[in-house]
């Protein structure tokens, strides 16, 4: 059985460690800086027309989240168990009276909170920039965007944990995480585009195939939250909106949550099987 007090203690330790993790700090600073820069550029251009160009800001933020957030989650997750395993600290931790599932869950919750904090600082400071530029009526869409970014971060962290539980060395884990990142961000979409062009996929097939990728789930969900329809995504978007209507957003969120739960369960299974070595 899971002891939640153990998990809480491990969560605190993980949060404390995150502050000393240079990768984490680098990602947090990079994300905040880029988000601020994008918001400033989008808004200073828009300011010339006397309007709040948040539609544009959110579009660039979607792009930024798609690039950086999976990278944060995957690499931090990949390093978590494999890194400690390589250093030998994992053995020390497991010498404590805690179960493997407790250790994994504690680490996962702790790192998730750290990621949420990083995103919170990024989105919070960007909101400052938007406020200074006269703001915009669309704060609810900004919150939706941030909410989905958090779920995406946790989902990619979960995938990172899966890698971490499966391999022995930190460098292998990082390599695999980077490859998975490339796959999700670039090759998956490129392959699907090529397939669509060659096989003349119809919009239904294309849309369903795209839903396999958690990044597409995030993107489609964020856009449908911001725009309240999917016409911007062309025929496939219109198809999705007509077919699923108001069920679309819960559906996408549910699928994204599956990307959190399933890799985590698999990681727990693998970690139990492999042990601390």
């Amino acid at each position: 059985m899971l002891d939640f007090e153990n998990i809480l203690v491990l969560t605190q330790k993980e949060l404390y460690d995150a502050r000393r993790n240079r990768w984490f700090m680098l990602y947090a600073v990079a994300f905040t800086g880029l988000a601020l820069g994008l918001a400033y550029m989008a808004l200073s251009g828009a300011g010339n027309y006397g309007l709040a160009g948040f539609g544009r800001t959110s579009a660039s933020l979607i792009n930024l989240v798609l690039l950086i957030v999976p990278l944060m989650g995957l690499t931090l997750g990949a390093l978590s168990l494999a890194g400690e395993r390589e250093k030998g600290t994992l053995m020390y931790l497991m010498a404590q009276p805690i179960s493997q599932a407790e250790l994994l869950l504690g680490k996962f919750v702790g790192l998730s909170l750290a990621l949420i904090a990083a995103l919170g600082i990024g989105f919070g400071l960007t909101a400052f920039a938007i406020a200074l530029n006269g703001g915009s009526a669309e704060i609810d869409t900004y919150l939706i965007l941030m909410g989905f970014a958090v779920v995406l971060a946790v989902a990619s962290l979960s995938l990172g944990f899966l890698i971490s539980a499966a391999v022995q060395r930190g460098s292998t884990a990082i390599g695999l995480a980077l490859f998975l990142w490339l796959l999700l961000v670039f090759f998956g979409d490129l392959g699907l585009m090529g397939t669509a062009l060659v096989l003349q996929l119809d919009v239904q097939q294309l849309f369903l195939a795209a839903l396999v990728n958690p990044l597409q789930l995030f993107k489609i969900a964020a856009i449908s939250g911001i725009r309240s329809n999917l016409e911007v995504l062309g025929p496939a978007g219109v198809y999705a909106f007509r077919t699923y209507g108001s069920a679309l957003l819960p559906l996408l969120l549910g699928l994204l949550l599956l990307w959190v739960i399933i890799p985590l369960l698999l990681a727990t299974y693998l970690f139990k099987k492999r042990g601390v070595l």
């Binding site: 502050r19 006397g50 904090a117 400071l125 400052f128 938007i130």
Partner: peptide, 28 residues
């Protein structure tokens, strides 16, 4: 175009930055 005010954005910005910082500082 009609101009929105930045007030709600300020509140949001302060609340979220503070919460995020608290998350990092609390374990300490």
């Amino acid at each position: 175009m009609p101009q929105a005010t930045g007030e709600t954005w300020f509140i949001f910005a302060v609340v979220f930055t503070a919460m995020a910082l608290a998350l990092v500082l609390l374990p300490r």
